[in-house]
Design a binder for these strands. Structure first.
Lengths: 244, 244, 244, 244
DNA sequence: ACGGTCGGGACTGCCCGTTCCT
DNA sequence: AGGAACGGGCAGTCCCGACCGT
């Protein structure tokens, strides 16, 4: 099968258009007509690339998952954020910033995260994947001895996951919920209860090293295209994530 | 206007049925047929009580707002939670527990909170109202000198609001997010960064004083299975939440 | 449930319109839009009365079955055409004429007979029912000793059934296949091989006694209403068909 | 034009696949996708060979017509079956057997015969051609003085045509209608009323002379390809019909 | 020449929210 | 309050035409 170049472009624009429409109207109410019109292709073209509305949603989620995994997986071997410079907690903070920034920049990621909540869906959601990663990071910090006394990794992970979900949901209507400042404010409030005295001082609630979504272009159109606002500057190279 | 008793019962069962259907399928995809069938009334009857789908949603939200205001407004004069026994922070913690419990118990409240996010809607949302109330409570605590140094009431209110929204959203699919334990865990994590040293010791992350949703015959209009019936009497004064 | 009078009229006109459209375009290609337009009702009204296209077809067949059973069942007790005046063979000839006349007059009957052939369908077809009745009649004649030597009731029934099916199919495009003359010609050709010498003389290939479809009005609009064209002449007055 | 060998094979498999799909689902409902999938070629390939769905149907009918004409026209000059050995009636019986056998063996023939009935179509149908041939044969027999008294060639031809159409239609769902036995039974029943006393004895209701479909491979792939049953042996040349 | 990928409209069956008339 | 009817709109599918690789 020889994928023409135009085809992959059409596919991408359909995914993006679908994410935008889903974000504006919700998955259920959104009409495929609106999607194809926004993408500038015909109804038939849409169904050539995606057999059903569900398939379209699946594609969105897959692309979001790719971006998500690039964020959490940057620079670490299998097993999680064990050996991050600056410690696991700092890495958690940084990744949170990157994730939220990615949600702010890319409709596809945002919609990909929330789809499972809107529709009855089989399989595991990205939100759950994120929660598990947070828990891993916290367990890592626990092993490093940087967690405050009495803090359970699982419980804290749930709180953190809930907050990010809240930011994501609220950010859908008002992007100000998806800013670095908002995230930093959250960590400032949370770190004292989460980290032990030493970590409280060494861990910064603001992103260190490189913020922004690593990779980018490679994935699937990633953050580009959609919400360009403020994006470019964050593409500061991540010092120690020799991915690529 | 003296509403026939049967009429008000029908109305209530329609509201509840609608909330359930909306919760399961989302506002857009939900069909009024499903609502009327679940309520056990006819299509025509539904439209007799509610002129449109939007009106049905409005009624849900109104009822949720009533419950919500009973929770936050219990026992305090106009102006907010300034003079709560045990301090504003403790009251904030308690109200949070009550709110989440109410979300857990009552579909109508849960749907009432999330409707504005699903649909394009005029007017202000309950979520925003909640955020404002949290901010008020924090400002109150600030005046009481119980806030940690460097904490801004507005910023902290946003974080807290985000977390509750997250719990609400996640709780829609998995009720375990709407438990007292979950809320307590959240406050345990947050209080160290929010309260000054004294308050950190005096404020309990668990609900104190009167638990449960105040007001309402049998649970706040809400919780229980059916129709709460005579609403008017709910202005019951918040009985006793005098700290330990 | 009190069926309004208008409702039953709408239902009838939908069934008739559907039969006409199905007859002209075939079941598969026919569009429900064409049906509702021809019936003079809206698309929604159609789906109020018939949940699906299949349901519409079912209704057509049910109505055809009713007419069919009125034809074969007229004036005989359960068990078939055993005690027909003039003998079983004459009754077979007469019923054939009535059936073909009914096919000529009423689109609903015609379509009802052919539907099972067009679509994949569960259940038994009217054609098969007709074949069985013919076989019964022949067995009856056999018991009366009027069958020619060497004629098997089952085999002859198949041939007769095939011919009527052929007339029905060809009559769909050209009504001249569904005339009394055509049927009489068929019986003239067939009787010498079918009946014994005596019956050959006593049985008339033309309808005796009562022609025309008995009943009619009662059932479902039966033969009336629809395609009057050419019909009038066949409405030979039925001398004695005090059906029920 | 030298057609590549693969091309003609593809074309044949498309025709056969189309006939099968049309037979199963009907012309209207059948999708070209199903046709191309069954033929094992791509959508584009189908449209390369056949510009439209109608063209595909046309090709089917043409091929069926070729087979049909080989059956009726085997070895006789223009004017019909005038001088068949055994008489025109015997030839009619034989040809009927061959035609029905051909319908039983080859989907293409079967579909080719029924297509005109399913769709609005320009041109004359094979069924009509068959009816005309039957009439010719009967007129021939009339001239030979073998028809029973009072039998009109035209009328009898219509009855015979109706029966064969009935067999063809019923045979689409149940092949037992297209057997030699069925046809023989039909002729046994019909001959006494059709032929005069002498012919009644000399004409056999079962096939005489060369059975099967003549021709075969030569023509247009006719019955070959799909249903191999007994094909090759049928190439018995029609012995002698030039006489007179 | 032959075939395949991609895309374009048009349309279908179904269903929905709503209104009219009892 | 209820049965009936209305229009509009949805997802999905179809038949087909371009434009490409062989």
């Amino acid at each position: 099968m020889v994928r023409q170049e135009r085809a992959v472009r059409t596919r991408q624009s359909l995914i993006r258009a679908a994410a935008e429409v889903f974000a504006e109207e919700g998955f259920g109410p959104a009409s495929l007509t609106a999607v194809s019109r926004r993408a500038g292709v015909s109804n038939g073209a849409l169904h050539f690339h995606f057999a059903s509305k569900q398939a379209l949603a699946q594609a969105i989620e897959d692309q979001a998952a790719e971006t998500f995994r690039r964020i959490i997986g940057a620079g670490e071997g299998p097993g999680g954020p064990q050996a991050a410079p600056g410690g696991a907690l700092q890495r958690l903070v940084d990744v949170t910033h990157q994730l939220i920034a990615s949600l702010a920049q890319d409709v596809v990621v945002r919609v990909g995260f929330s789809l499972r909540g809107d529709v009855r869906w089989p399989g595991r959601s990205l939100r759950l994947e994120w929660q598990r990663w947070v828990e891993q990071a916290l367990r890592c910090a626990e092993r490093e001895g940087r967690l405050a006394a009495g803090v359970s990794a699982g419980g804290a992970a749930r709180t953190i996951a809930a907050t990010t979900v809240g930011l994501e949901v609220l950010g859908g209507a008002d992007p100000s919920w998806l800013t670095d400042g908002q995230v930093a404010g959250f960590w400032e409030l949370l770190l004292p209860g989460l980290a032990d005295e030493g970590a409280r001082r060494s861990v910064s609630p603001r992103p260190t090293g490189g913020a922004g979504v690593p990779g980018g272009a490679g994935g699937g159109g990633g953050g580009s295209g959609g919400v360009p606002g403020g994006g470019p500057s964050q593409t500061i190279v991540f010092p120690a994530n020799e991915t690529d």
